[in-house]
């Protein structure tokens, strides 16, 4: 399958997760449910495989915790009694006006403005998750549409879309993103839009390639022989056949979008302050790390790392579950 030792290690623990089934899990899997006469859709098969994947379980658990943190952030804030943008000039800074280390009052310490870092990290999760999911939805929707159109219609339309993808891919993401952010006002929706639109190239390429091979299938000819128009063929016949790849790729785009958003915020062209955001928090902390204020950098960075790692591992497991033969999107 994959040559990455990390992935191999993860697969090595698989048999223990399905204790008793032994090493032949891949072959054994369908047998318990085979008693049922009811036909099972490919989706249910994938879900069943996903349920047996221990890495997927851990990643999903982590993501659930992060989502809960984001959802319950206001509740936790009111319980602790610290608002996300509340300045504790007296209690949150030392005599020289520097951040305080973690304590029973400030679990993650405070930042240079005397704000509670713990609450801000929780609130930062909201931005990261919402931007990550919304931007991914945009790129997946755009990418699927352009990929379907380019792949199925072909010809000049395909050339135009393919060149557009090449152009977007050839310019580094940050260069375009910063340029766009500079000429308009940075803000939440701009970040969502920029991250989402620029990442459409990846799903578009995947879908285009898939559709180009799928459109030669006899079932597409059969649909044409029945009188189906191009729209129907694209969205009723071809879309269900590429949706698995789209979902797999989409689940891997979420962490990419989260990191992109954090990068933009880190560079000061993302979510404008004072909104709590991991990227801008890491940027603020960078000047303080050398001076020994380790918590200031550590907690937002750790939050970002855990979130993206969890999404990446889940995405990887989703790919394995959707395509057990291993002919994944990485070829």
């Amino acid at each position: 399958m994959s040559s990455s030792p990390e992935v191999r290690g993860r697969h090595a623990v698989k048999p223990t997760a399905t204790a008793g089934a032994g090493a032949g899990t891949a072959i054994m899997e369908p047998s318990p449910a085979a008693k049922k006469i009811e036909g099972r859709s490919p989706w249910r098969l994938a879900l069943e495989r996903l349920r047996k994947d221990r890495a997927a379980k851990i990643a999903t658990g982590t993501i659930v915790v992060i989502v809960l943190c984001a959802l319950l952030a206001p509740l936790i804030a009111s319980w602790v009694g610290h608002g996300p943008n509340q300045l504790f000039v007296d209690t949150g800074l030392d005599e020289e006006g520097n951040p305080l280390a973690p304590s029973s009052t400030f679990f993650f310490g405070t930042d240079s403005n005397g704000r509670d870092l713990f609450i801000r990290v929780l609130y930062g999760a909201r931005i990261s998750l919402v931007v990550g999911v919304l931007a991914t939805l945009i790129s997946v929707a755009l990418g699927t549409f352009f990929g379907l159109v380019a792949g199925y219609i072909g010809g000049v339309v395909d050339s135009l879309i393919a060149r557009l993808i090449d152009v977007v891919l050839s310019i580094p993401f940050l260069v375009i993103a910063i340029s766009i952010a500079y000429i308009s006002h940075p803000g939440f929706w701009l970040v969502v839009f920029v991250v989402g639109v620029l990442a459409f190239t990846y799903p578009a390429r995947i879908v285009r390639g898939q559709v180009m091979s799928l459109k030669e299938k006899e079932y597409v000819e059969a649909a044409r022989a029945l009188g189906a128009g191009p729209l129907r063929i694209m969205f009723i016949d071809l879309l269900p056949n590429v949706i698995a790849q789209v979902i797999v790729y989409g689940s891997l785009l979420i962490p990419l979008a989260i990191v992109s958003e954090a990068s933009l915020s880190f560079l000061g062209v993302g979510i404008p302050p004072p909104t709590a955001d991991w990227g801008s928090m890491i940027n603020d902390a960078s000047g303080y790390y050398q001076a020994g204020f380790w918590w200031y950098l550590l907690f937002p960075a750790l939050a970002l790392l855990i979130t993206t790692l969890a999404f990446n591992i889940l995405g990887d497991s989703v790919r394995d579950a959707m395509d057990p033969r291993g002919a994944g999107i990485y070829e």
Binding site: K217, E218, Y219, A223, R224, G227, P240, N241
Partner: peptide
Amino acid sequence: QRRMRPLRRQIQMVFQDPMGSLNPRR
């Protein structure tokens, strides 16, 4: 192709590959 549409009802095809001619996801 548009003008052919009504005629599609009168000319139909049965294909060689019974797997390939049926959409596997439907």
